[in-house]
């Protein structure tokens, strides 16, 4: 990945946050360790950040920090799954998913009772792909099976969901983050989704609907 970098000094200048805030957020894991990139420059060592990622993260932190404590915020950004469970009615009521996605999900998996976060995430991804028209309902079932069977194997690590099509036949792939993958020319990559990002979006969405 060739993300543009921003130096620590430029970052503070641009966002108006202080050194203390930056270190506090780092301690609370609001900003992941791997975003602190050390490089030597003409003045010695300097710290750089992936520009787009850090700016959008700081923007989110600044916008949310009035309502949530730092620890709650840390929860939102962590790729691991929160302990949460909602009923089907709540999911619909809070506009997290539509009844179409929910129906497809229920048909694809034998499911009863309330939904744990991991399940909500599956429905959420399904909802999104159905809405965008990238998949048919039939393929939706395949997606649900893939996520149910294999997503737990990543156990909180970030991974990517890929949907490819060749001659109209769809295949879902789950792979660890930042791995390289190449296909023959007949293959079309329809969807490439970072699960950590979807998780973050979902957590925000659930958080908004709460108290």
């Amino acid at each position: 990945m060739n993300d543009e970098l921003i130096s620590k000094k430029e970052l503070l200048d641009l966002t108006g946050i202080s050194y203390g805030q930056l270190y506090r957020w780092k301690r609370k894991s609001l900003i992941p360790e791997e975003w602190f990139i050390r490089k030597s420059s003409f003045t010695g060592q300097e710290t750089f950040f992936p520009k787009d990622k850090i700016l959008s993260r700081i923007d989110k932190i600044l916008n949310m920090k009035d309502g949530l404590s730092l620890d709650e915020l840390a929860d939102v950004f962590s790729p691991s799954l929160k302990e949460i469970s909602l009923t089907a009615e709540q999911l619909l009521e809070r506009n997290i998913v539509t009844s179409i996605a929910l129906d497809v999900y229920l048909k694809a998996s034998r499911h009863e009772g309330s939904f744990m976060f991991e399940k909500i995430l599956s429905v959420f991804v399904l909802e999104r792909l159905l809405q965008s028209g990238d998949i048919s309902m039939e393929e939706g079932r395949l997606l649900v099976q893939t996520l149910t069977e294999h997503y737990p194997a990543f156990a909180g690590r970030d991974c990517e969901l890929l949907l490819i099509r060749k001659m109209g036949v769809a295949a879902f792939i789950l792979m660890s983050k930042n791995s390289e993958i190449y296909f023959d020319r007949g293959v079309k990559v329809v969807v490439r989704l970072s699960m950590a990002q979807v998780t973050e979006e979902l957590k925000l969405k659930i958080g908004e609907g709460g108290e």
């Binding site: 620590k8 202080s18 050194y19 203390g20 270190y23 010695g44 060592q45």
Partner: peptide, 13 residues
């Protein structure tokens, strides 16, 4: 040795 602290960088408020 002397009473002193040697450090590469210090950043804070």
């Amino acid at each position: 040795g002397l009473k002193r602290l040697i450090v590469d960088s210090i950043e804070g408020d």
